[in-house]
Amino acid sequence: MAKTVNLATINWLFVCGLAFCLGGVVVLNLMPLSADCICPLKKSGFQNSEALQSVTQPPFDMPEHKLAILVPFRDRFEELLQFVPNITRFLQKQRVVHHIFVLNQVDRYRFNRASLINVGFRFTRDVYDYIAMHDVDLLPLNEDLHYEYPSDLGPLHIAAPELHPKYHYETFVGGILLVRREHFEEMNGMSNKYWGWGLEDDEFYVRIRDAGLQVTRPHNIKTGINNTFNHIHNRYHRKRDTQKCFNQKEVTRKRDRETGLSTLEYKISKIHQLSIDGITITVLNILLECNLNNTPWCDCSGIAAAAAAEEPIK
């Protein structure tokens, strides 16, 4: 009897110890990664990435395409709280395999939407075969707007000019634009010269055209500019950074043939897994680099230039 009790006790301790170790692994996987661990997602490590998507993707086998929702972000947390559950429900109904990546700019420079999208693309391109360049304040309402894999012709513009609440010119490609991985690489991504608000999507339209690609848009949509999207941006609470300084206005009206994915300079300081209403998203804390000689308008206040001048020579 004594031997039986001892054996049972040993087995019980072994099971408890194993459970404790497995629990530790789960906790560690949910902790933010240090800067030393940061690297782009890889296909070989996609198992962990898929686990993070368990809430956001429907249960079907071997999806043909995977969509990375890239959300350029700074100080819009209340909008993010609305965006995540809304877009998740919307895409679940369409059975779109996806994951949300919040591209959180944490450096001292002005907001750079295009460069953040370039960072998000670099981080996700080995796992996801198309991206959605998605504003956090634009929520689709019409279920006939399909976030499908774009055709060979070129990007799919969900927020078409005849549907967007605010922008109605023909070459507009902002708001929500879906781009295949190979097309984004072919265009060398987006320009890195657009600090502050506006015009980066207009420059990207010219890149699309120069690459011989075409913008396609949803067909047979019965709603219009007032009821296709919910535009949750409050322009009085969140003012646009429309300031122009140095020669910014002149330079940013031209096609940029110098910068893009190949010239992007940045650091990802932290990667967080954040849960909103039970939906897990990935937040990248991004530090963009600015060449003050090429784009001094990344800081119209002059603080960055003064700080750079005071740095010791290495």
Rank of each mutant, 00 (worst) to 15 (best):
residue 245 C to V: 05
residue 17 G to A: 04
residue 29 N to D: 15
residue 177 L to Q: 06
residue 188 N to E: 12
residue 129 D to H: 03
residue 50 E to D: 10
residue 77 F to K: 04
residue 272 H to W: 04
residue 152 D to E: 15
residue 130 Y to P: 09
residue 34 S to D: 12
residue 27 V to T: 11
residue 111 F to P: 05
residue 77 F to M: 01
residue 83 F to H: 04
residue 108 R to A: 14
residue 194 Y to I: 00
residue 172 F to I: 06
residue 171 T to P: 02
residue 66 K to E: 00
residue 272 H to N: 06
residue 84 V to T: 05
residue 39 C to D: 15
residue 128 Y to E: 09
residue 23 G to R: 05
residue 162 E to R: 10
residue 69 I to P: 04
residue 81 L to A: 05
residue 229 F to H: 10
residue 21 C to S: 14
residue 184 F to Q: 05
residue 249 K to M: 04
residue 1 M to W: 08
residue 223 T to Q: 10
residue 179 V to Y: 02
residue 127 V to Y: 09
residue 26 V to P: 06
residue 115 S to A: 15
residue 226 N to H: 11
residue 238 R to H: 13
residue 144 D to P: 02
residue 215 V to D: 02
residue 194 Y to H: 08
residue 32 P to Y: 01
residue 314 K to D: 14
residue 201 D to H: 06
residue 173 V to E: 10
residue 102 V to L: 05
residue 75 D to S: 09
residue 171 T to M: 08
residue 235 R to L: 13
residue 160 A to S: 09
residue 314 K to L: 14
residue 116 L to V: 06
residue 155 P to A: 03
residue 144 D to T: 12
residue 120 G to A: 11
residue 280 T to K: 12
residue 197 W to C: 05
residue 79 E to R: 03
residue 227 N to L: 07
residue 309 A to K: 13
residue 233 H to W: 15
residue 50 E to L: 12
residue 300 C to P: 03
residue 91 L to G: 02
residue 75 D to R: 13
residue 53 Q to N: 13
residue 23 G to F: 03
residue 129 D to Q: 08
residue 143 E to W: 00
residue 146 H to Y: 12
